[in-house]
C-alpha cells in the first residue's frame, strides 16, 4: 500500500504492447528487409516492402512510415463501419450477449461455431531454447486486412473485436484517419462500443462477491486489453477486501463458509463451466 507505483500496467504501456500487432500496409516506396528481433510470429525480420504489393508490418513501424507518408495502411476488417455497427448490434440487441461481450475472434486451432469437423489442429510454437508455447495477442494476426476474396466469400467469419481493439482503433484513427473508410463514423462507433462494454463491465461488479467467495467467476470472454487495464485496480481491490472479510473472519468462526460453499459446489459439479469459452481471457488480470 505504501508503494507508490500503481498496480498493473498503465494505459500507455498497454498501448505500447499493442504496437506489436501486425497491420496490412500498401507501400509507396521500396524498403528492404529490416533484421529485427521477433517482430512477427514468422520470424525476426520485417517483410520486404515493394509497391504496390501488400505486406504485414508491426503497428509501430506502420505508424512511423505512415507519418513519413511512405505507406498507406489498409484498415483491418473489423474496423470498417459496417463491421463495427454489426458488432455494436450484437452487443446491444442480441439476447445472448445482453450481459456478455461480443465473441472474440477465433483463436488458431479453436473450432468455429457450427463447424465442428474442419478444425486445424493447434500446434505449439517453439521458443529459441525449445520450450513449447502458444502465441497470444499481439502475436496473432488479428488486425491484418483480409484479401478481397476472403472478405466477401461465402465462408467468411462474422467480424469480431480483437484483444487490442481499442488501442489499435484509436491509434489508427489518430495517425491514419485518411486511410480509413469514413473515419468520423468509425470514431463514433468505437465510442459507442466502449460505452456499451463499460456498462457491461459495471454490471459484473454486482456479482463479484460470488467470484470472491463461492468459487464462481465473472465471464470476461471477449474483453479487451485496455478494458482489463482500466478495471484491474477496482476489481482486485473489491475481491481482495471481500476475501479478507469472509475468509479471514469466518476462518475463526467454526468451519469457514467459503469451504462449506466449495464442498456444496463440488457436489453439484461444475456443469455450467465451459472451458473452451474462457481460453485466453484470464490473462493479465
Amino acid at each position: 500500500m505504501a508503494f507508490p507505483l500503481p498496480q498493473g500496467i498503465t494505459p500507455s504501456e498497454i498501448a505500447f504492447l499493442s504496437e506489436m500487432e501486425l497491420v496490412t500496409v500498401v507501400p509507396r516506396q521500396r524498403l528492404e528487409i529490416l533484421e529485427l528481433l521477433g517482430v512477427s510470429p514468422s520470424g525476426g525480420s520485417t517483410e520486404l516492402l515493394q509497391p504496390p504489393v501488400r505486406a504485414s508490418v508491426p503497428l509501430w513501424l506502420a505508424l512511423l512510415l505512415k507519418r513519413q507518408r511512405r505507406i498507406n495502411i489498409v484498415p483491418p476488417f473489423w474496423l470498417h463501419p459496417e463491421s463495427l455497427s454489426f458488432i455494436l448490434q450484437i452487443e446491444t440487441e442480441h439476447r445472448d450477449y445482453s450481459d456478455a461481450f461480443s465473441p472474440p475472434p477465433r483463436l488458431p486451432g479453436q473450432q468455429s461455431v457450427g463447424d465442428r469437423t474442419a478444425s486445424d489442429k493447434l500446434k505449439p510454437r517453439r521458443t529459441v531454447d525449445g520450450q513449447p508455447y502458444f502465441p497470444t495477442p499481439p502475436f496473432l494476426p488479428q488486425n491484418i486486412a483480409l484479401a478481397p476474396a476472403e472478405a466477401t466469400g461465402p465462408g467468411r467469419e462474422a467480424p469480431s473485436l480483437p484483444y487490442h481493439w481499442l488501442e489499435v482503433g484509436s491509434m489508427l484513427l489518430e495517425a491514419a484517419s485518411d486511410d480509413l473508410v469514413d473515419p468520423n463514423q468509425t470514431r463514433r462507433l468505437l465510442k459507442d462500443l466502449r460505452e456499451v462494454r463499460t456498462a457491461k463491465m459495471r454490471k459484473g461488479i454486482d456479482v463479484l462477491d460470488t467470484a470472491a467467495m463461492a468459487g464462481g467467476g465473472v465471464a470476461l470472454t471477449g474483453v479487451g486489453a485496455m478494458e482489463i487495464g482500466e478495471m484491474r485496480g477496482l476489481v482486485t481491490g473489491i475481491v481482495e477486501n471481500l476475501r479478507y472479510f469472509s475468509g479471514f473472519v469466518l476462518g475463526k468462526i467454526g468451519v469457514s463458509k467459503e469451504q462449506a460453499r466449495r464442498e456444496q459446489l463440488a457436489e453439484e459439479g461444475n456443469k455450467d463451466y465451459d472451458d473452451t469459452q474462457d481460453y485466453g481471457d484470464s490473462m493479465e488480470l
Partner: peptide, 10 residues
C-alpha cells in the same frame, strides 16, 4: 482512489 485514477489514466 484506485478506480478513479485508472479511469482517469485511460
Amino acid at each position: 482512489r484506485v478506480a478513479h485514477d485508472s479511469a482517469k489514466e485511460v
